[in-house]
């Protein structure tokens, strides 16, 4: 209950704080928010676009949340996502398989690729104590350069007609569109399924409990007979696999081919999503939906309310600022609650 309240306070706080900025930029904040709301929820297409925009944020947000619950900060989600998207695009375009199997193979291949991309930092962390923030960030650049090379002119995967992209994914590997005439695709169902699975795994299985225990206190976990190294490696790979899935969903569901520039930084934005969602899969889903609304609504924001698209970036930034401020608020609430408890006990 408290958590839902904090979520709502954070979001509303950011929107209120952004209002004077919109006014300074020369627009009416109320009509801007009306356009945002109308653009994201007011029509069939808007609603579909909100879900489409939320899908990669949700899947990547889960990747961040899972690693964080295990005490790891995976900043390499973006690179793992790119690798996943590239593998899905390559399998989708270059391999021939029956319908149904093809799409599953492409997604699993992407998940495997993402997991392998996370394996190196995981092993370095578990056995050499190298901080995962450094290694995952560095591997991002490796991923960007490798993928750019593969689809550069003369690269092995580049399309004949479209620069900086692979050939179109074959129809057998497409994630079907599920709500004509919008472009909403099966990927949103996959993402929601992954979200439910992550929640179940973290809170209803022994392995998930171990993961959270290592995250909460690795020393205590070790003394309780948990193989901390094994958990660290598995957590990081799981996080990478989720990120790889996110890339596959975008490529197979939305773009129909791997574009070198398909991700505007979903992997980085998802850190904000996971923070707003308090690292809980259900919270991440709510946060992804909110950020999805901002993205989808930004079209009407520009077209109708004549507000710069950058205002959406400003609101997102304010949300992050309020998330940070929330930590302070949370402590206040906790300390006042414990003081009340003490007084009750003492008195």
């Amino acid at each position: 209950m408290l958590r839902i309240g904090l979520f709502v306070v954070t979001v509303i706080g950011a929107l209120v704080a952004a209002a004077p900025l919109i006014a300074i930029a020369g627009s009416n904040p109320l009509s801007a928010y009306r356009a945002l709301l109308q653009g994201s929820l007011g029509s069939r297409r808007g609603l579909a676009e909100t879900l489409i925009a939320a899908t990669p944020l949700l899947t990547c947000g889960l990747a961040v949340a899972v690693s964080f619950q295990g005490g790891l900060f995976n900043i390499g989600v973006e690179g793992q996502l790119v690798i996943g998207g590239l593998i899905a695009g390559a399998i989708g375009a270059e391999v021939s398989l029956p319908a149904g199997i093809h799409v599953v193979v492409a997604i699993l291949g992407a998940a495997l690729g993402g997991a392998l991309w996370a394996l190196v930092p995981a092993l370095l962390k578990a056995f050499r104590g190298v901080h995962e923030v450094i290694t995952t960030i560095m591997l991002n650049y490796v991923a960007f350069s490798v993928s750019t090379y593969l689809v550069s002119p003369g690269g092995p995967l580049v399309s004949k007609t479209q620069p900086s992209a692979t050939e179109k994914v074959k129809a057998t590997a497409h994630l079907a569109r599920i709500w004509q005439p919008t472009r909403l695709h099966l990927g949103v169902v996959v993402a929601i399924g992954l979200c439910a699975a992550c929640w179940f795994f973290l809170y209803r299985t022994t392995a998930g409990y171990r993961l959270r225990m290592v995250g909460a206190n690795p020393t205590a976990a070790q003394f309780n007979g948990i193989n901390v190294r094994g958990v660290v490696v598995r957590t990081m790979c799981l996080s990478g696999a989720l990120a790889g899935c996110a890339g596959a969903i975008e490529v197979l569901g939305l773009h129909g081919r791997y574009f070198d520039s398909f991700s505007p930084g979903y992997g980085f934005d998802s850190i904000a999503v996971a923070l707003l969602g308090m690292m809980n899969p259900l919270g991440v889903a709510a946060a992804a939906a909110f950020f999805g609304m901002l993205r989808a609504g930004s079209v009407l924001l520009q077209a109708k309310a004549k507000v710069s698209k950058d205002m959406v970036t400003v609101i997102s930034g304010l949300v992050v600022a309020f998330v940070a401020a929330r930590v302070v608020l949370e402590r206040r609430l906790e300390s006042s609650a414990s003081r009340r408890d003490r007084r009750r006990r003492d008195g």
Binding site: A53, L254, H255, F259, S263, S298, V299, Q302
Partner: peptide
């Protein structure tokens, strides 16, 4: 002009 910030838009 409607500005795009990402491929998906």
């Amino acid at each position: 002009a409607i500005e795009s910030t990402e491929q998906a838009q």
